[in-house]
């Protein structure tokens, strides 16, 4: 089934300069009882964003009106922990279309790519420069170009070529879906099964 396409993303950023942000922080387990994919953005970073009585915590970055945008910039090893795709759905549903970090947990990265959320891996120095720039000036714009695999900060002139495998890149740009691709291989899969006696 077709998904939202992503090629050029130009946006302000939300900085989250913490390492090892795990999936339990992104979406706590007690919000995983839903049976649909929608609505998880409401509880993104729930326990950092709201206090015990459900009031917004003013010191958390998502509650700071100065910051907004479709790009989340986070410390290294973002998305570690559980395999819950709900974490990606929450980030996406909140309105982010890309997460920039120096390092992603494997399952989170796969899940992100399967949902049209782009994980952009940058060197630690690039990340730290970007974080401090955005923290100083919330209006900093970042431009991500999927086709050319670049992330650029026009104000500083910094640019980085990021890795993404060619198959996933095409899926993102064209809004293609893995399951459609696999369904097209059913005959091949069936002959693999009889050949290997599986």
């Amino acid at each position: 089934m077709p998904k939202e396409k992503l090629n050029i993303l130009e946006s302000r950023c939300v900085p989250l300069p913490l390492e090892n942000v795990d999936t339990d922080q992104i979406i706590p387990a007690r919000f995983l009882s839903a049976t649909s994919r929608e609505g998880f953005g409401e509880n993104l970073f729930r326990d950092w964003r709201y206090d015990k009585t459900g009031n917004l915590k003013p010191d958390f970055i998502l509650n700071n009106p100065a910051y907004s945008g479709k790009i989340l910039v986070a410390g290294k090893n973002f998305g570690s922990g559980s395999s819950r795709e709900h974490a990606v759905w929450a980030v996406y549903d909140y309105g982010f279309r890309a997460v920039v970090s120096s390092f992603f947990a494997d399952i989170f990265r796969n899940n992100a790519l399967n949902n049209g959320l782009l994980p952009v891996i940058v060197p630690e120095k690039f990340l730290q420069d970007l974080l401090s720039m955005v923290q100083k000036n919330p209006e900093t714009i970042v431009r991500i170009d999927v086709q050319n695999q670049t992330i650029t900060v026009p104000a500083s002139g910094q640019s980085h070529f990021f890795e993404i495998n060619p198959y996933k890149k095409e899926c993102l740009i064209k809004g293609l879906d893995d399951i459609d691709y696999l369904l097209g291989l059913k005959d091949l899969i069936a002959s693999f099964e009889s050949e290997k006696n599986r």
Partner: peptide, 22 residues
């Protein structure tokens, strides 16, 4: 190994998954 829900759907639909070799 653990997978996300989109991948659960892939396996239900085709008994296969798209996966880069670690």
């Amino acid at each position: 190994f653990g997978i996300g829900t989109s991948e659960v759907e892939m396996v239900l639909a085709t008994q296969c998954i798209l996966q880069p070799k670690p």
